[in-house]
Design a binder for these strands. Structure first.
Lengths: 238, 238
DNA sequence: TCCTGCCTGCTTGTCTGGCAAGCAGATTTT
DNA sequence: AAAATCTGCTTGCCAGACAAGCAGGCAGGA
């Protein structure tokens, strides 16, 4: 049953190779910012592939904002010569080192967000954070792990920063890291006492945000996340 | 000459619309994680487009890690049901609010990185940071703005964290924000005194990293970047 | 001389049809 | 029952085609 289905890496497909090649050509200045790329037909001959392949490769660069195209006119390198999207490639979530690195980034982002939230939160946003905190407590009282409530609490804080970049980045990291924590928590029977500890830390963060104390909020958030990372180690070891 | 070339938005192309639609269908659970997507032929009929269009749309989702495909077997929603890449879309760099938000993120990342660097830097990494600091001083002595040297200094610090995610994210933000600063600096004649002020702040960061004082390095970096943001305001206003 | 409208060639967006490689389940053979 | 084979389906890639749209030139008129 436990069939080892090792997914063989067939990745360097034609499209991928071509896209990478074009990206390099732009990065190294062969195609300069604002310059017109060769026509698709031309690229076909240059690289010896069909037009469909060229189109898909160029389509990816367009998706990343590295090139823009106008029907009838041609495809052009973006004025900045840089992709407009940041790609955070997380290949392997079981890799311990990679998880550590992600956790570091998560801590940095979340701590800074908590500081901003403490300084800027509106009364309504504060109320929403408080409500999430209470929901978390109710989950604990029901003896549930309350991962969704946990996530909602942090989400409410992030939202209070009013900075969409923080929100999007935090969402990305949260959805992955916390989902990891959930499965870990669910597999251990001893989470009851620990989730109450989590709640105490949450309370500290909330108090700081309510008081409008940025530095305090930052410290509380950082402490909480470091503890969470330590707890994760504990879950995994049991 | 000052030709107003407002690029009309023709964007919702067929491919884009289809890609967005599929992404929604995955997000809303119509296609569940790990499930097999309908065959390309099937999707053609479902959405009334040709196979080439379907292929390009699905290709984008593959690029984002949201689906994986195996030749002969089919295309499947990624096990996590989430894209493996984080897309930080910066649409408009002239928008003041958006710049403020990006600057906040940059400060958070760079300050955290400086703290990590102070705690972890190897002697070799410290030497590299010092060398970058000196190069910056030489640029100032030559009465140049030294933006490249400035960038190299921060790059050396980031590198010392040993965390590739910090490096990539910082690179992304740096390349954009600092390029912005460069043009601003170049357009003002009063940068001589100001770059010397920059250097004093750099020195403070370096001293903290050399001493291995994390908290100190964080504060110095944060102070520096806040000053930089303030100077940027000044540049732009003159 | 300068402007205006048309025209022509080129480019991208989309479609159709087709072939090879590869997978998965059913069928046959051992 | 286990192994080998067959068959239908799917993706990867290709060739050719047409419509929509852009840019520069050209001719004619003011």
């Amino acid at each position: 049953m436990a069939e080892e289905r090792d997914i063989i890496d067939r990745s360097p497909s034609l499209v991928e190779k071509l896209a990478k090649r074009l990206q390099e050509d732009i990065a190294t200045g062969r195609y300069r910012p604002g310059a017109k790329l060769p026509a698709e037909q031309q690229l076909c001959e240059n690289y010896g592939v069909s037009r469909a392949t060229v189109r898909e490769a160029v389509g990816r660069l367009k998706h990343d904002g590295l090139v823009v195209s106008r029907q009838g006119a041609g495809a052009f390198v973006a004025p900045s010569g840089l992709p407009s999207v940041f790609r955070l490639d997380v290949t392997d979530f079981s890799d311990a080192e990679e998880m550590t690195h992600i956790a570091e980034l998560l801590i940095a982002v979340e701590a800074a967000a908590s500081e901003l939230a403490a300084r800027r939160r509106s009364p309504e946003q504060l109320a929403r954070i408080r409500e999430a905190l209470h929901a978390m407590q109710r989950a604990i009282d029901r003896k549930e792990p309350g991962v969704e409530e946990d996530l909602a609490f942090h989400r409410a804080i992030i939202e209070a920063t009013g900075n969409p970049f923080f929100r999007d980045l935090s969402d990305f990291l949260d959805q992955r890291v916390r989902r990891f924590i959930r499965t870990a928590r669910a597999n251990t029977a001893r989470f009851q006492g620990l989730t109450q500890a989590v709640q105490v830390e949450h309370q500290a963060i909330y108090d700081a945000i309510e008081a409008g104390e940025g530095a305090w909020a930052r410290d509380a958030a950082e402490r909480h996340l470091r503890q969470a990372a330590a707890r994760l180690e504990l879950y995994l070891r049991t």
